[in-house]
Design a binder for these strands. Structure first.
Length: 283
DNA sequence: GTAGGGTTAG
């Protein structure tokens, strides 16, 4: 029953509630099992609770639970998200049978820690094992390619996605759009965008920012109005793209208008990045 | 009816 409650919070993304329920269980001496620990340690990674995460890591080692691949993978993910890449890698290397989830967790760990070269190096090693990457693996690989400007590798990933008929999920599609836009291939970014069956705010934002950073401010603003017609809610990052578009294209009046609309119509408070763009080009 | 990995920021 406790696991079911924790699972509910987990699926809702309420990581703090997951941790709170577990701490309550410890306080009242409620028994838990490995399934409990998998959820809790994953939540620890999401909220950066390294203290509890490491406590669970020690508990799992001392109680002979390291044969549980789900638990070890969750620990790899937690250590990586808490910035403990070496600890994550040690556990990952110790996994006797690494499946696609374990590989994806370690690759995404490097990408999220800004160690994109390491991420691609690990991806090469994964390919050498003949284990097939899936759509989730490719999201992290594309993110690393985008940061490094590794155009050829990213293009290869795109062709792999098509060849193997990996599902063009909203997250994978967004990663492709972002990758092409960051490499300056706006036409390819638009092509992927158009081919996506489902788009969300992140997808629109990736293309708007891509247009803006490639000097196509007017088209970025047109995309922003299409986004609203599509009833897709803009986020604070969307407005970074919109204001960047105005700033780069010298559309000062429109930029000020969007800035006001952001706070008044959407209730989004300007973040530090927004102030930088505003004071840099729209005053 | 309970378990691991993913995308946007001048």
């Amino acid at each position: 029953m406790w696991n079911a409650i924790i699972s509910g919070h987990f699926r809702n993304g309420d990581w703090n509630d997951v941790v709170d329920v577990f701490k309550h269980m410890l306080e009242v001496g409620e028994p838990f099992d490995q399934i409990t620990l998998v959820s809790v340690v994953t939540a620890c990674g999401r909220i950066g609770d390294a203290k509890l995460g490491e406590w669970i890591g020690r508990y799992a080692e001392e109680n002979g639970m390291m044969g549980n691949r789900n638990l070890v993978t969750a620990l790899v993910d937690m250590y990586a998200k808490c910035g403990e890449l070496a600890k994550a890698r040690r556990l990952f290397d110790g996994l006797q049978l690494k499946d696609v989830v374990a590989w994806s967790a370690m690759i995404s760990g490097y990408t999220q820690a800004d160690q994109c070269q390491e991420a691609l190096a690990l991806f090469s090693r994964m390919q050498a094992t003949k284990l097939e990457p899936n759509d989730v693996t490719m999201v992290s690989v594309l993110s690393a390619c985008a940061v490094l400007g590794a155009l050829e590798t990213g293009k290869w990933v795109h062709s792999y996605v098509r060849r193997k008929h990996l599902p063009l999920t909203v997250v994978l599609g967004t990663a492709l759009v972002d990758f092409y836009a960051k490499c300056g291939c706006i036409d390819s970014a638009v092509e992927v965008f158009k081919s996506m069956p489902v788009k969300n705010s992140w997808t629109w934002t990736a293309l708007i920012k891509g247009m803006a950073s490639n000097g196509r401010g007017r088209e970025a603003l047109e995309l922003f109005s299409s986004m609203r017609e599509a009833k897709c809610e803009p986020t604070d990052v969307t407005f970074i793209g919109v204001l960047l578009a105005c700033s780069h294209s010298g559309l000062v009046e429109e930029g000020r208008w969007h800035f006001n609309s952001m706070t008044q119509d959407y209730g989004i408070q300007p973040t530090m990045a927004v102030w930088w763009i505003f004071w840099g080009g729209l005053v």
